[in-house]
């Protein structure tokens, strides 16, 4: 276990926080439109998916 955790040094150097934040923001953005946006075109397009995946709907 300890040997594995020591092999990550090169990854830690070039890993910025920015891409992580960007990925989370992009994910939230997509889920907002499919799961939450109430404008009727989003609601109607995603209706069956919202129900299947148990997002609060109607």
């Amino acid at each position: 276990m300890t040997t594995l955790t020591n092999t990550r040094t090169d990854a830690a150097v070039d890993t910025g926080v920015l891409p992580i934040v960007a990925a989370i923001a992009a994910g939230v953005f997509l889920i907002y439109f499919t799961g939450f946006a109430q404008a009727s075109q989003y609601h109607d397009s995603a209706h069956d998916t919202r129900h299947t995946l148990a997002f609060p709907c109607h």
Binding site: A23, I24, A26, G27, V28, A46, T49
Partner: peptide, 15 residues
């Protein structure tokens, strides 16, 4: 809608 949803969850998980 399903593809967009799961790409969204995948982005958060991989982040």
């Amino acid at each position: 809608a399903v593809f967009v949803t799961f790409v969204g969850w995948a982005l958060m998980m991989v982040a």
